[in-house]
Structure formats: structure tokens, C-alpha cells
Design a protein around this nucleic acid. Structure first.
Lengths: 227, 227
DNA sequence: CGAAGCTCCCTTACGTCGTAAGTCTTACGT
DNA sequence: ACGTAAGACTTACGACGTAAGGGAGCTTCG
């Protein structure tokens, strides 16, 4: 009786793929070397033959996410011509990125924590610069714009963690005393849209609102630049 | 010979103050129960008499930061009347918050990770809603504006971690091949301002640019609302 | 005055984490 | 057949948060 379980051999790729699945399924803090090894049908230390340490795994995960983004947009290169609609093109590219991140909610936190941006991350940013350049923005304006869009460039998903169910305050009267303006706003907005008892903030809507605010602002500065 | 070292007795306040100093000095990941105990001249487990666990300490730290913000702005209540200059008032309040966070660069990451916002955090948000309300924005617009300003509300400092020295690419020709648009922008911006060899992005400038983009956008929507 | 109780700190120990160091097994080239 | 090396496994260490319980010193009350 052969005790060989016909395991697929380990490899950098297989480790990273499994790590991504595990992070998606159980969350980032459950992604531990031993848990990952279990998932691979292997001992923890065996992983170290294919990847030097845990940060390398995390960097690999980020790079995989960017690869998904590239697939979603059909490559990071800016379209051949988008002078007339640069902001629409950029908008949809950013929303593509957001869609990918919604599938991997742990990714934004990871990107914040890891220092150096990998090759694909640089390619992604480069594509965005290309789009803005094609729209006629000056390099200076693009530079500021990159910073302004900031986390939105990566379609961040901070709201996904905690927000929705948290809003209905435990003791409304005490809450109103503590935060009168917030309470008034809450009452008003809920009144306008009474069916949404909880989850009264639609993340997608809010995200697009903020994004459009920035894109509109950039477009206006472009026009101002052009006299 | 009394071995009593005349230690100040432990207390919730003293623990939190020392924890904040330690985080400022050594970074958040060096803030460990044992290190904190050392700093207090005490054993690790002694802390647990005054605070239930580590998350409670982290929450306490965040609350301390918001207390500093309150001191910086002179309380979170909106000024009595700011109809004509709501966005200037909001702007300076947010820049005040940013100034505090620059003293505690670990704080933003902590706020992102901790779920429920403490009393002072709610008070801070409430003050901002009050300012916008005083400026004549509708509750609906305020609601969206809150989300849009998002991290800027807390004056985030993500750039402080990694950015500045990272930019000069190791191999310029390879970088240009990988990211042509980025490289062009880099060359252009550096050319315009040749004295800033590294650190060519001024964080404060970039932050204010993005903030103004959002504030201008909100003001324009307010005007549109008012016919 | 002495005993009981409370406050505040310490000791010990457990389980989990990432990983350094070394060992065993298998497959293959010669 | 045998050395060799790739690729897995075993063992162990130090750091982490913290559960459980111990004990010194003060207060309170009979």
C-alpha cells in the first residue's frame, strides 16, 4: 500500500494560489504558515523551500490581486485615444479595480502595510498616468491628481469591515445628546429612504460619489490650466 | 532598607499615557504587553488589573488621540455661525486633525482596524456635520460628503510610511520601459523643481490639494442644490 | 487587637505565531 | 550500486497575548 497520496508537488505558484483562497475564505489573520501548510497537505516548514518568509507570501498575494485587476481591464496600457473622455475611462478602470478588491477585502489593508509596490502595481499606476496624459492633463496636475485619488485609485473597501450594521445607536436619546448633528442627519436620511432599515449607506454609491467629486475637480483644473 | 522604589502606582491613565509614548517612540508593533510593562516598571500581567486586554489599550490610545484633536480645535462643537465660510472652517479643522496625527503616525492604521468609534470620535464627526449644516448643505449632501472626505476627515498620513525616498528608481532605463508614463511625469516634475532631489512630493501640499478638490466639489453641489 | 476582606501586583504556565537548524526520503545521473 | 541533491519533515526557540491563581499590604469591623 503506497502511502503516497498523489499530491501535486509544491511550488511557489501553488502556495500563493492556496494562500489567496485561504485569505478569501477565512480572513487574513487566519492565514498562518501552519494553516496554509495544512491546506496544502504539507508541513509548515516545507513552504520555506519555495518562499523565503511570510512577507514574501503577502507580497505575492498583492501581486496576484493586481494580476486580477489587469485581467479585468484587459491590461494596464491606456487606450489608444481617449482625449475626449479621459475621466470616463479612468472612472471605469478604477471601478474595475474596486470590483476586484471586493472579492479580496483583506487586500487594501495589506497594500497599506507593505512598503514597496511590485511590478504590477507600478504598471497599474502607470496606466492611470497614461490615461490622464491622454486626456490632456499636465504632468503637474496628474501628479497631484494621483495623490488626491490616492486610496480610491485602488478602489478601497474600508466600509466593508464594520459599517453597515453599526449605525442604529443603542440608546437613541443618549446618542442625540452626544451627537445632535449626526442624529439629525441620520433621522433625515432614514426618513427619505425608509425601506433601508440598516445598511442605509450604499457603499458603491458613496464610493462613486467621492470619486466623481475628485474627477470633476480635476477636469475643472484642466480647463483652468488651458485658459 | 525598604525595597519600595517609590513607584507611582499604576492606573488606567498612566498605562495609556505610557503606551502612547511607547508607540510614538518605537512604533506600534513594538507596543507589546511586556514592553509596556517594562516601561512602567512592572510585570506584564499587572496591567490586566487596570485594563481588560490589549484591544482595550488600543482603543484607549485612539481615544487619547481624539482628545488631542479636541484640544487642538478648542472642542468639537461647530462655531456659532459659519454660513459664509463653512468650507474654510472645515478645512482648518481637518488640517488641525492632520497635525495631531502627524505626531502619532500609527494612529490611522489603528483606526482602520478597530471597529466601533469611541465617544470622542463620534463627537468629532458630529462637529463636522455641524459645520456643514451651518454652511447650508442638505443632510443628504452632508451624508455623501462625509463618506467622500472619508479618511481625509481624519487627516490620514499614509504617505509618511514609505513614500519619499522610494521614488528614485534603481535602474532608470528598466523603469522607463516598465512604466513610461510614470517616468515621463517624474522627469517633468523633477525638472520643474530641481532642488528637491528626493522627497519630491510634499505630503502637506498633496493633502491640501486633495482636500480642496473635495471641498470645492461639495460647495458646487450645494450651489446646484440651491438652484 | 485580631481576623476578614479588598486592592493591587506578581508568578507560572499555556497555546499560537514565525522560523532557524538539522534530518530523512526519494529520484536520478553516472 | 552509489553519491548527490531536491524537496519534504522534525524539533526547537523566542516572542506574543493572556488564563489561573498566589500573596503582600491596607482597610474595616467585631
Amino acid at each position: 500500500m503506497p502511502r503516497t497520496a498523489e499530491r501535486t508537488p509544491l511550488s511557489r505558484e501553488r502556495v500563493l494560489q492556496t494562500a489567496l483562497q485561504l485569505a478569501d475564505r477565512d480572513g487574513l489573520d487566519r492565514l498562518t504558515m501552519r494553516a496554509l501548510a495544512d491546506e496544502l497537505g504539507v508541513e509548515a516548514m516545507s513552504i520555506y523551500y519555495h518562499l523565503p518568509n511570510k512577507p514574501a507570501i503577502l507580497d505575492g498575494l498583492i501581486e496576484q490581486v493586481f494580476a486580477e485587476m489587469a485581467a479585468e481591464t484587459g491590461g494596464f496600457a491606456p487606450p489608444a485615444t481617449n482625449a475626449s473622455n479621459w475621466s470616463a475611462v479612468l472612472r471605469s478602470r478604477i471601478l474595475d479595480a474596486r470590483r476586484v478588491l471586493l472579492r479580496h477585502p483583506w487586500a487594501p489593508a495589506l497594500m497599506n502595510v507593505r512598503g514597496t509596490p511590485g511590478t504590477l502595481a507600478i504598471g497599474y499606476a502607470d496606466g492611470i498616468v497614461g490615461i490622464m496624459r491622454g486626456g490632456g492633463l499636465s504632468h503637474d496636475l496628474i501628479h497631484h491628481g494621483l495623490h488626491a485619488i490616492g486610496s480610491r485609485m485602488y478602489g478601497y473597501v474600508q466600509e466593508l469591515n464594520d459599517d453597515n450594521a453599526a449605525e442604529p445607536p443603542a440608546d437613541p436619546v443618549q446618542f442625540a445628546a452626544l451627537a445632535p448633528h449626526l442624529a439629525a442627519m441620520l433621522a433625515d436620511v432614514v426618513h427619505d429612504d425608509p425601506d433601508s432599515t440598516l445598511g442605509w449607506c450604499d457603499d458603491q454609491t458613496e464610493f462613486e460619489f467621492g470619486l466623481d467629486l475628485l474627477l470633476d475637480g480635476l477636469e475643472r483644473r484642466r480647463l483652468a490650466e488651458a485658459h
